[in-house]
Design a protein around this nucleic acid. Structure first.
Length: 557
RNA sequence: UGGGCCGUCGCCAAGCGGUAAGGCACCAGGUUUUGAUCCUGGGAUGCGUAGGUUCGAAUCCUACCGGCCCAGCCA
């Protein structure tokens, strides 16, 4: 139809194209993907891309996406992370069909298959220690050489592997390896270890095992067991694909999944290294994994990002195999776009300056109104008490200024948002010469209309009634780092921490409607930015608001 | 100096032999009781470089150049 040709469809990414081809050719009847986090830390913005990709594919192709915890290393993994990961995935708006899976669910099957490999003479127990094994592996440019234990008999290997399983060896004493090719140009194929001894309790299997399968030995087989059709991972696993395929080809697995790699998400002025993120937490540079400055999903949630904005951002960034660094401005655009259309408007004076309207009756208070959203009046209005004394922001007043300054200046007029036009008369200063109050007068009959004398106001500023308001604390966050790539090379990322990444403002004055702010209510403090109640400080009597992101500011003076 | 992968506007990213989509950022206008939003317009004679094939190449071939990944009993 004409409509179709006019509509600009979003082009498919390479994985979507592959799936459509597989669906069309009949290779698969339904797509099955999985998001396979290791429960050893908190999810961050980079994981969000993988989540959106894998679960998104299930949504668009009517397929399935499993949530599987890749828990093959009990020394690093904890149940606490399992819970936080589940919460984050759901918060992002995705759900997994059926139960949560664990690679550990397949430990018995994996073990049985390993026995089969030994019986076929394709695996052996190797007694080389780590240093020796490294030496035998060769280098990037030199072939490795066979382990002296490679030719043990099937019976001996079986017996040794059983002893490993039974806990008769110490950690590191030996490991089960698969026989491939010590001279293979792909290092991953030089007889990789598939089982190692770890005398550590596992959060799912307890102390049932003291030997654990390696990632390479477990991942593809787990995919096969679950009927995963497209096993999507990041680029650094590319050379593991040959190994992945080797296991699928050499084991009696129930299906033949295929691995595809895409480039991970990098954002400038941000780090996503778990190690470095942990360092920020441990050394107290931030308050915790969910500190609003952190690029973790929990941190972004607390900061006020919405699931929709994060999904939109991931969608904008695209899925390719090109290494790149996305500009944070794209993330900032995504959250502003969502909040601009959905956040309730309110006024909040961050750094108060009292203004007394000398011609306004001392005992009078009138209830003015402002729309909750200027472009969506159907959302209703909020009541704005107005009286003789109000607060405006210190930045919105100057004794004198050039024409570019569109705020309150002595002898000049300015519009109070949703209220009267006022004109400043005098600045009252303290002994230090600081302005502590402004005397002004209001122009009658200017609510919702221009002055009858035809002299319009040149700007609009926000304000809050001096008697009826709520006191609150506002936290302004800025980027954590001053360098676009704090994460590169051997650079000390801590040396580029932004000293101004947090500004705490106390004594802020918010309009009365803010007293009703709930945990999931996003606000736009007009002329300031988007804010949300801090989830961790909700018990405090003084409300604490986090700035999610400022408004776009094109005012250059 | 082994192997694998990648190079299209400042940043993402379409394109798959027929004469460079789109988004972010930026710049210039317009509207506006948020210096916001919104609207309009602007920008690669060029697709890492150099050759070649072709009527025609970002798309095919060749050679270079640059970047990333791999030598954990981590994932």
């Amino acid at each position: 139809m004409k409509n179709d040709s006019n509509e600009t469809k979003k082009p498919l990414n390479f994985i979507e194209r592959i799936i459509e081809e597989d669906l069309a050719s009949g290779r698969i009847s339904q797509s099955v993907t999985r998001f396979p986090p290791e429960p050893n830390g908190y999810l961050h913005i980079g994981h969000a891309k993988s989540i959106c990709l894998n679960f998104g594919l299930a949504e668009t192709y009517g397929g399935q996406c499993n949530l599987r915890f890749d828990d093959t290393n009990p020394a690093k993994e904890e149940m606490e992370y399992v819970e936080s990961i589940k919460k984050d995935v759901q918060w992002l708006g995705f759900d997994w069909q059926g139960d949560i899976r664990f690679t550990s669910d397949y430990f018995d099957q994996l073990y049985t298959w390993a026995l089969g490999l030994i019986e076929q003479g394709k695996a052996y127990v190797c007694d080389l220690n780590q240093e020796e094994m490294r030496a035998y592996r060769g280098t990037l440019t030199e072939a490795g050489k066979d382990s002296p234990y490679k030719e043990r008999s099937v019976e001996e290997n079986l017996a040794l592997f059983e002893k490993m399983r039974a806990g008769e060896f110490d950690e590191g004493a030996c490991a089960l390896r698969v026989k491939i090719d010590m001279a293979h140009p792909n290092m991953q194929m030089r007889d990789p270890v598939i089982y190692r001894i770890k005398k550590v309790a596992h959060h799912q299997t307890g102390d049932k095992w003291c030997i654990y399968p390696s990632y390479d030995y477990a991942h593809g087989q787990s995919d096969a067991i679950e009927g995963i059709t497209h096993s999507i991972c990041t680029l650094e696993f590319e050379e593991h694909r040959a190994l992945y395929d080797w296991f699928i080809a050499n084991l009696p697995v129930p299906s033949t999944p295929r691995q595809y790699e895409f480039s991970r998400l990098n954002v400038n002025y941000t780090i996503t290294s778990k190690r470095k993120l942990k360092q920020l937490v441990d050394e107290g540079h931030v308050d915790g994994w969910d500190d609003p400055r952190m690029p973790t999903i929990s941190g972004m949630r607390r900061r006020g990002f919405t699931p929709k904005s994060i999904r939109e951002f991931c969608d904008m960034a695209g899925v390719t195999r090109t290494d790149g660094i996305v500009d944070v401005s794209m993330l900032e655009f995504a959250i502003r776009e969502d909040l601009n259309t959905n956040a309730t408007r309110a006024m909040c004076v961050l750094e108060p300056l009292k203004v007394t309207l000398t011609n306004y009756p001392e005992d009078k208070t009138e209830q003015l109104v402002g729309p909750k959203h200027p472009n969506r009046i159907e959302l209703g209005a909020r009541s704005l008490p107005f009286s003789r004394e109000i607060f405006i922001d210190q930045d919105d007043f100057r004794e004198s200024a050039n024409k570019k300054y569109k705020r309150l200046v002595i002898g000049k007029r300015v519009r109070l948002r949703n209220a009267y036009i006022i004109e400043a008369d005098e600045a009252i200063k303290n002994e230090q010469g600081e302005i502590i109050e402004v005397k002004a007068h209001f122009i009658e009959n200017t609510v919702g209309k221009n002055p009858e004398d035809g002299i319009k106001a040149k700007g609009v500023i926000h304000w809050v009634d001096a008697k009826q308001h709520i006191d609150c604390e506002v936290r302004l966050y800025d980027r954590l780092f001053t360098e676009a790539s704090p994460d590169v090379g051997g650079k000390d990322f801590l040396s580029c921490l932004n000293p101004d990444n947090l500004r705490v403002l106390t004594g802020c004055k918010g309009e009365m409607s803010l007293a009703e702010a709930g945990q999931d209510d996003h606000y736009q403090f007009e002329r300031e930015g988007y804010f949300i109640l801090d989830a961790k400080e909700k018990h405090v009597s003084i409300r604490v608001f986090n700035r999610t992101i400022g408004l776009r500011d094109t005012w250059k003076k």
